[in-house]
């Protein structure tokens, strides 16, 4: 089933692989999501985590409420102007590599709240990998998004993380 099934069972045996495939396999099967639930979509997110849909099947057993240990940011719900700096700080605090899912119409585009106090899509200010449409999306949509993230992780390469492009990640430490 896993990698070990490739091993020869009658003693000895070895296998050859690439660092990328081992690392990506490990990463994609143990994503630690950081839930950022600010409104109704978060309820659907919780439902996806509960026993009926059970996201643990995909390796995301543990919700990480500390951004330092998370590698997947789940933005579920509308983000007001006072919350955006908080969200950005959380994004900065997550360690590389990291991925972002924007759940629902509000997080992706502001939804029906086209008002002075509402961010019109978090992707204006932080990078988003997968958008989930719906108000709120069904857990199936959310699982689909999760599997898309797994696919992204699979296609990733450790070579991508050699050198930082800019030092925005370090800025956090300098300013504090």
């Amino acid at each position: 089933m896993g990698l070990e099934s490739n091993l020869n069972t009658d003693g000895g045996g070895f296998m050859v692989t690439t660092v990328d495939s081992v690392v990506n396999w490990a990463r994609k099967s143990s994503l630690w999501p950081m839930p950022f639930g600010t409104a109704c979509c978060a309820i659907e997110m919780m439902a996806t985590y509960a026993s009926r849909y059970d996201l643990a099947r995909f390796g995301a057993e543990r919700m990480s409420f500390s951004p330092r240990q998370a590698d997947l940011l789940l933005i579920g719900g509308r983000v007001p102007i006072k919350m955006m700096p908080v969200l950005q700080k959380i994004y900065e605090q997550m360690s590389e590599p990291k991925w972002v899912i924007s759940i629902g119409a509000c997080a992706s585009s502001g939804g029906l709240f086209d008002t002075y106090s509402m961010i019109q899509g978090v992707d204006q200010f932080i990078p988003v990998d997968v958008y989930v449409p719906g108000c709120p999306p069904r857990p199936e949509n959310f699982i689909d998004a999760f599997m898309k993230i797994q696919k992204l992780v699979e296609n990733d390469s450790v070579k991508n993380y050699k050198k930082p492009k800019n030092n925005s990640f370090n800025k956090l430490w300098q300013t504090n």
Binding site: E96, D114, Y116, S117, I119, Q120, Q124, S157
Partner: peptide, 25 residues
Amino acid sequence: DFPVKGIGYRENFPIYSRPFDNNYL
């Protein structure tokens, strides 16, 4: 007389890009 869409506050946040190369996306 305040516009519903505001007067620019919601557009004025710093934009964060990925710290690392993300061509794989």
